[in-house]
C-alpha cells in the first residue's frame, strides 16, 4: 500500500463538502488526483482525511455567457479540450491544454485541481490570468470571489483557507476579434514548462495593437501577467524592436532557480516564448481581420 492510511469521504454536494471541511482536521481535497496521487504515493502528504470531489456532479459544468465562460472546478481538462463552447469563446485554453500532461492525465485532471495545486509551470492558471478570471470559493461563511491576480499567494499556495474550496472559475471572454497563442518550452511533450507565454491580441485597422494580454508561466513562483510589456506594446505595430523592448521587461522578474533550469535561463527562454506567442497570436489576429 503506497499512501499512508486516511479516512475517505465522498460527499455528493458542495453543502456536504463545506460541512466536512469545517469539521475535519488535516483533510486534503482530491480532484483529478494527477498531482495529489503521486504526492500521496510518495507519502509526501499524509492527510488524516481524503475528501474526494469526484462525485459532486454540480461542480462539473461549462457555461458560456455573453462575455464570460464559467467553468466548474471539477470539469475535466479533456472535456474542456473537446468543448465547442470553449473553442468558440476562449480558444487559447484549448491550445494550452495540448501542453497539459498527456491524454490519460487530462482525462482525469480538472481545472479546479490545477488552479488549487498552483504549480508554477501549470498552463491553466496562466490562461486564467490571461482572461482576467474570477474564482469562486466556498467556505463556512458562504462564497467569495477572488480575482486571478490575487489568487497566487506564493509558491504553490493559492489564496484559500484550510476550510475553503474552489468551486468554479469565470473567464472574461474578449468580445472583439482577436488572435491568441499559448507557447511553451518543456524538455518533453507534456512535461513541466521551463517557460511559457500566453497571448491575446486585438489589432486595429492599421495593424496596430488595440489591446493585448500576456501571461507567463514556469518562470515566477505564481503565474503573472506581463503588464509592463502589455503597456509597451499597446499602440505598437509589433515590429521586432517593440517585441525586444517588451521581452526586456521580463528581466526585472524574480525567476525560479532549480535543477531543471536556472533563473537566468528561464528568463531568456521566456523572452523567446514571448516573441513566438505574440507572432502566432498576431498572425491569427490578421487572419481574423482579413476574413471580415
Amino acid at each position: 500500500m503506497k499512501p499512508a492510511p486516511f479516512k475517505y469521504h465522498d460527499p455528493r454536494s458542495v453543502k456536504d463538502l463545506v460541512g466536512l471541511l469545517a469539521s475535519l482536521e488535516n483533510a486534503k481535497l482530491l480532484a483529478g488526483g494527477q498531482s495529489l496521487g503521486p504526492m500521496l504515493n510518495f507519502r509526501y502528504l499524509m492527510p488524516d482525511h481524503l475528501i474526494d470531489l469526484n462525485r459532486i456532479a454540480e461542480l462539473a459544468y461549462i457555461r458560456p455567457g455573453a462575455d464570460t465562460l464559467e467553468i466548474g472546478a471539477m470539469t475535466r481538462q479533456r472535456t474542456l479540450e473537446h468543448s465547442q463552447e470553449v473553442q468558440r469563446t476562449c480558444p487559447v485554453l484549448v491550445e494550452a491544454l495540448h501542453s497539459v500532461g498527456h491524454i490519460a492525465t487530462r482525462n482525469r485532471g480538472t481545472i479546479g485541481g490545477s488552479l488549487s495545486h498552483l504549480d508554477p509551470a501549470a498552463e491553466l492558471p496562466g490562461v486564467c490570468a490571461l482572461h482576467d478570471a474570477m474564482l469562486t470559493v466556498a467556505g463556512p461563511n458562504g462564497t467569495r470571489s477572488i480575482a486571478m491576480a490575487e489568487w497566487g499567494v506564493s509558491f504553490m499556495t493559492p489564496n484559500l483557507e484550510p476550510n475553503e474550496v474552489l468551486t468554479g472559475v469565470t473567464l472574461k471572454a474578449w468580445r472583439e476579434p482577436h488572435g491568441y497563442a499559448f507557447v511553451e518550452l518543456a524538455r518533453r511533450q507534456g512535461d513541466f514548462a521551463m517557460a511559457g507565454v500566453g497571448c491575446l491580441v486585438a489589432l486595429d485597422g492599421n495593424s496596430k495593437v488595440r489591446r493585448i494580454a500576456l501571461s507567463l508561466i514556469g518562470v515566477t513562483t505564481t503565474p503573472v501577467r506581463l503588464s509592463a510589456a502589455e503597456k509597451l506594446l499597446t499602440g505598437s505595430d509589433l515590429a521586432g524592436e517593440a517585441i525586444k523592448a517588451a521581452a526586456a521587461e521580463i528581466g526585472a522578474l524574480e525567476a525560479l532557480d532549480d535543477a531543471h533550469a536556472t533563473g537566468t535561463y528561464r528568463k531568456r527562454l521566456a523572452g523567446v516564448m514571448l516573441g513566438r506567442a505574440i507572432g502566432r497570436a498576431a498572425e491569427r489576429a490578421r487572419m481574423q481581420g482579413s476574413r471580415q
Binding site: 488526483g33 494527477q34 504515493n41 474526494d52 492525465t105 482525462n107
Partner: peptide, 18 residues
Amino acid sequence: TIHLDGAAARSCILFAVQ
C-alpha cells in the same frame, strides 16, 4: 494505463474506491 469508462487513465494514481 487502463480504460475507466472508456477513457485512458493511470491506475496507479486512482483509488479502487473511486
